[in-house]
Design a protein around this nucleic acid. Sequence first.
DNA 1: CAAATAATTTACCAAACGGTCAAATAATTC
DNA 2: GAATTATTTGACCGTTTGGTAAATTATTTG
Lengths: 195, 195
Amino acid sequence: MSKRDTKRDILQAAKAVFASKGYEASTLEDIAEKAGVRKALIFYYYPSKESLFLEAWNESIDELENTLFRELADESVYIRKLKKLFRGYIDFVMSRREVMKLIEIDRVRIMDGPQDGDEWGRFRLRYNRFLQKIEELIEEGKEKKALPSDISTKATAKLLAQMMGMGALEENITLERIIRIILSGMALEPERILL
Amino acid sequence: MSKRDTKRDILQAAKAVFASKGYEASTLEDIAEKAGVRKALIFYYYPSKESLFLEAWNESIDELENTLFRELADESVYIRKLKKLFRGYIDFVMSRREVMKLIEIDRVRIMDGPQDGDEWGRFRLRYNRFLQKIEELIEEGKEKKALPSDISTKATAKLLAQMMGMGALEENITLERIIRIILSGMALEPERILL
DNA sequence: CAAATAATTTACCAAACGGTCAAATAATTC
DNA sequence: GAATTATTTGACCGTTTGGTAAATTATTTG
């Protein structure tokens, strides 16, 4: 009979509630109920609602990032890298849509502000590091002549991240069709990457 | 000395606050203060916070939609239609970014649910009508052989709406570059449409 | 097994919030 | 100008919320 990990139960419950209602409309009572504890216990493990949300946010982006990029390091052929990236993403969305929801449901509000200086600064930093990862991948493609040299790295990264955020609401078949359009726009052949 | 339109003042203040903080974190006290009235007065003009938000939401989508589609009716050459659409959009974002913010900051939470049945049903209906408009435009392009016949209307509409939503946060130069990528992906020549 | 420590719950708090209603003020009507 | 109507405000309400502290229970340690 395995021992309960209460802190993790609370965090998982929090992720589910934040993903469903967004941060502002989520109550600690809801989270506690879902975790099967009383609300005050949340404060034994987490100093505040916000810090709970920060951990949920960071873990979610970590999870997405690890899934997308972890296995690309083994790959040296750029097209194969992209293949793994998009395949990995499609699979990820199917089983972990909640992650995309947690990020997207609050992303615009969080990202609408300066790099730091307010309560959302750390949240923005984390998301920006994710964007940076995508930019690096695009830069790599340009260096390897697999992508047009005149394509804007930043704009492409932003578009890809935005497309990925659509995983919060869209069906996989729609996502695949959208990815096809974007890949074409990046001067790639969708058929070689998606199937 | 023109007469004050208090109801409109309240609605405009509400739009600004909702666009900045999102619905859930916006308080009627904040809105009243911004409008220069006392909170109770909001209830003289609007039955509830939610109905105030619904009006702000609908007016914002109306404004976006009118700006995008109003002048396309005069145009019969499809490429010129698109030119007007994207030009109009870029100009709109420059002067009315608050509209995009108001929609995007709450869109994922609102759209994450069935067509009707809950408090957000009417909000979804309105946004879906906007999506429908984009779909019709794409269908028109396919009929006129200006777009590939095998392109998915739904996926393309969703991608375009998502791209437009990026106007909430992105600079115009980034938006233009993103539009280029998408237009290429739609088998169009960006230079003929953007400049 | 008792003491110490960790985990959990109960009970409570102040502040905040959407909303209500009567009173006050302003504008309009005759 | 008085009466009526419209608009605005002040005062208040009940509920909810993030959070706190003490009490209780469970687990660990020696």
